[in-house]
Amino acid sequence: MGENIQKIIIKGTLLLLGAFFCAPVLFLLSGSVMSRYELGESLLPLLTDGERLITWKFFPAYPTFEHYRKILFQTPQFFIVFWNSMKITVFILLGQLLIAVPAAWAFAVYPFRFRKLLFTLYIVLMLMPFQVTMLSSYLVLQDLGLMNTHKAIILPAVFSTYPVFLVYRGFCDLPKGLIEAARIDGAGEWMIFVKLGLPLASGKILSAAVLGFLEYWSLIEQPLAFLEDQSLWPLSLYLPEIHLEQAGYSFVASIITLIPAMFVFWSGREYLEQGIVASALKE
């Protein structure tokens, strides 16, 4: 009896806390359908220095899609920024797939000299924050004349070591004997890679893609440092630039930014968790 009550209390508390963690989305949703007048009323205290405090209604008195209409049909600028984000994210993910999967395969299957050393180096590099490698990336990009282009964001990210590491974990589950057997049966290396390796690691590849998408969709540091031209900026830099006076616009833009991330999050939840767990396993 006591056991059950305890469980209910725990469940209630956790649910409440979890809901609290997700609450920002409710703010964004309600704000995005609020009329301009109502938004002004609610947010005015933030703009002026008066004594009034902020108020908020999660169910607006006069819901409207005015801001959505405006942003979708009358703001070409928003589209440019949105596609900048899409382009950067998609190209990074594709590039990573092309580089990381074969690289991981090589690490997992072919013993070569210095493999151990190289792999340790890989992990260390994976762990270094952007600030430490910022200057070196800058110097390379400068030499290649890529500064202030999308390539400056995409290229370094394509060669990032994190997906290699993650996919490598997937390939490691492949029993060595199986590869030997396939070789004896006359399968070419390419066949082994496609028929044995890829299906086995597909979960980890998806994990890498989900984690990668969430990471690159909200990229801040790199574009901030390497893109000067505002027309090249991704959503993550553009959004905060919108002034509070245009709050409706800002809310809708945030919602639209959130949608792809949410989509990937919900459809890839399982892989996201697998990815997190796999990245925590020690070599």
């Binding site: 963690f21 920002p24 704000g31 909200s218 959503l235 709050a247 945030s254 959130l258």
Partner: peptide, 25 residues
């Protein structure tokens, strides 16, 4: 529910943070 914030792009949070932590927030 707890993983959810991980998926929220930092940029979309800015507005909420301003509403929460301003003097009249």
């Amino acid at each position: 529910l707890f993983l959810f914030p991980l998926a929220m792009p930092a940029a979309t949070v800015v507005l909420i943070w301003k509403m929460l932590f301003s003097r009249q927030g």
